[in-house]
Amino acid sequence: MRKELPIWLGTMAGAFVVATRWFTLVNATGVDRMADRLIVASYAAAAAVGFIGLTRVHLRAIDARRPLWGYSIVLLVAMYGYAGLLFFLPASAPLPSWIFLNVMGPVFSTMYGLIAFFITSAAYRAFRVRNLESGILLAAAAIALLGNSAVGGRIWHGWDGLVAWIMAVPVTGGFRAIQVGAALGALGTAVRVLLGLERSHMGSPQG
């Protein structure tokens, strides 16, 4: 029962959503709106589970004095402090907005900005011309890099056209191939879940 019930639940939920998306006759009964409400409810439930799970993990870390347990205290204080604040004030009020924009803003910007450092290091160590293919890749990267930063257009008038061609032909073709492959893979996985053949999401080693 521990295996069969989740499989049946997954199959029925999947079939229900497929029916509401693909058959307009089904939607005449209003079940598509019910499906939407269920999805919203599942989002809220997932957030609640995440809140509880995060609390348990970090309380255990503090209790056991695991390495860097001090950061767990910071996390819990920030999480419950901000959530508590929103019990008394709406998220659009000046204080929660100010905290959000002036604390989270620099944190996220820092994380985003770190990419520049990693790109530079990778450019020095990994972006090597070892054969014809990697040479072509390097040349295309250099053209796109200078084109996107508007330097190329200053060097030569036709640079922007070259970048436009790279984006319109090889990039479009490559990404189409990736997206079609990913979509077919997702479709195959979805069919396996609907048929109860895919069980890895339940922790079973059987794929």
Binding site: A123, R125, R128, V129, A142, L146, V151
Partner: peptide
């Protein structure tokens, strides 16, 4: 921002070329 990204692009390109020369 375009000016800053141009400076960064030239730097990354120089680093890329230097890495290849050294190798």
């Amino acid at each position: 921002l375009v000016g800053a990204s141009a400076m960064a692009a030239i730097y990354v390109l120089a680093v890329m070329l230097l890495g290849n020369l050294v190798a």
